[in-house]
Design a protein around this nucleic acid. Sequence first.
DNA 1: TTGTACGCGTTATCAA
DNA 2: TTGATAACGCGTACAA
Lengths: 357, 357
Amino acid sequence: MSTRRATISDVAREAGVSPSTASVVFSGKAPVSETTRVRVTEAAAALGYTGPDPRAASLRSGRSGIVGVVFEEHLGTAFLDPVQTLMMDGLADGVAELGAGLLLLRDAPHADAPRAATLTTAPVDAAVLIGCSGNLRESLAAVKARGIPVVVIEGDAGADVPRIGLDNREAQRQVASHLRSLGHERVAIAALPVRSGWRGAWLDDEIDIRIDVTRDRLAGARDVFSDAPVFAAAGSFIDEGLIAGRAIFSSAMPQVTAVIAQSDLLAAGVIRAAQESGLRVPEDVSVTGFDGIVVDGLAPFELTTLVQPATEKGRAAGRAVTAMLKGVPAASVNFTCEFREGNTTAAAPDERGARVD
Amino acid sequence: MSTRRATISDVAREAGVSPSTASVVFSGKAPVSETTRVRVTEAAAALGYTGPDPRAASLRSGRSGIVGVVFEEHLGTAFLDPVQTLMMDGLADGVAELGAGLLLLRDAPHADAPRAATLTTAPVDAAVLIGCSGNLRESLAAVKARGIPVVVIEGDAGADVPRIGLDNREAQRQVASHLRSLGHERVAIAALPVRSGWRGAWLDDEIDIRIDVTRDRLAGARDVFSDAPVFAAAGSFIDEGLIAGRAIFSSAMPQVTAVIAQSDLLAAGVIRAAQESGLRVPEDVSVTGFDGIVVDGLAPFELTTLVQPATEKGRAAGRAVTAMLKGVPAASVNFTCEFREGNTTAAAPDERGARVD
DNA sequence: TTGTACGCGTTATCAA
DNA sequence: TTGATAACGCGTACAA
């Protein structure tokens, strides 16, 4: 009874065959006679050998059967955000054909997990980057240098990296235009974080927005309301929306008649803040969201929002990765949001009288 | 420009040092003179070397920095179930200290993904099994043979495997007793699936329940209502609850006055089915859930249910795995549900008059 | 502080 | 159908 685990060579010796033959028995990559197969299988059982060591196999074959999914946040939040959840669902679908496992990774080592697994240290065959902040761009360089296929969801990683995109700017502009057509002039924006680790604050400097989604949606809003003040929240949560909303409604700024939130969850929080301030939605203030997810506890409100095909985005990413691993070049895909009018928007208060019909 | 990628030996040669020195520069496991460090770093940059190959490193060191999380369902559904989502959130937290990535795996190859990565073929340092059906038990044997630390959430894997458990049976019994004390006699049960791939049907044979959660909760209900008919759904979804509810309310069985659902989502579906049948909840029929999650669109109902600490369960599993990888034996942990009375249960119709106070 | 030498466990390749 | 050989790329005793 040796102290170390049995290897495939041990099994081969026990079965009286060569290591390569034993290997074939387990991989099934070449025909093996039934008698040999049985002998090897029995030898393995006798030695308690449960199959090739994945580490060694992946070193030799160059394949690990793992697709890395890189988030730029605390991993936990990836599960708490409905949009991400739906995307993961689609992604799991998309890589199913490939038969790979999904490895959840963070973009870079963080204070609370300094030795966290990252794209550079993980044995992945391909990677899917979600969002594409500055940190992610670093990972990207490493991965590209290693020649690992990469797909980016919601971000720009250069012309040679397939992206799964969304018409964030156009969609947000559409909603902004809708508000303008309702007569709104004094509009505030509740934005998503501008970079990893952002704490939630009024935004002074818009040059330094490092998260593409935030920047693109903001640009869309700015296409219509070029001077709207922006409070960038710490994350896409109802509670953060509440904080943003309080800042917006209680500030010394001129009374806003509409708030453009960059996510449905933020919008839900903003609505709550409005109610706290004694403002009626949509009579006193209109609020718009983004994503088109189901927000719990928002009844009787139905957000005026943009519905994005989150699951489809994930599925497309999975398919792109699958294709690339098969050597087929993958093309970028751009998805479109669908405008959905709810009951959280109405004509601006000032113009109410004139607009009622 | 060679056709293959640079290795650490190439870098060492370029820098004029030995491979082992170069290795140390990257791993930081031994002191290196500043000049050497710079020389190696520059050589690496010149050659486009981005660090040790994770595959080789993990073969050599025996560590991959990956914790496998094994589900017994289609991976996508894992993200759609709020309970799983919360658990993953906690799990991510729990392994954070370890700095490992979470690899999402299925229990066994499936029809739609025959070559899917499994516990046996993935380079994991440790594994967390969620649920513990028959399929999982197979993986379990292999993993134990390989000496990989394992923790099981909601399942029994033998005395030597730490389990993160829940008082499913006792909790469910508590709810059943509550119903009985309200005067209910004719009760039906809307159960979770009894095994992987189950399609949803009345349950004839209760011997063959291969999913522990289902069996334990059923046992709890049976402790009070020993003859209640059981419709086992295909999954924990509102739509499956609807199917179960329709079966229950439209069947030729004696009019039930209460339905014990094994999850909140099932309960939500059952309520919908009741309304379809013209039954009022809770006046005509009481419905109970399990999990204590927020079910969207259920307003104005608040389920009478059992609140389970899902996030805590995940966190405990993560901590157990972390401990085991450090060589510290981990103990099993058993969590307790909290009974929460909502407005979906009331006195049984027959006894209403007698019970009003 | 640096270098030498070896093996981690497997599988691709090719010849028999 | 099977076997011999040679890497895969790295980490780490140990010696210098």
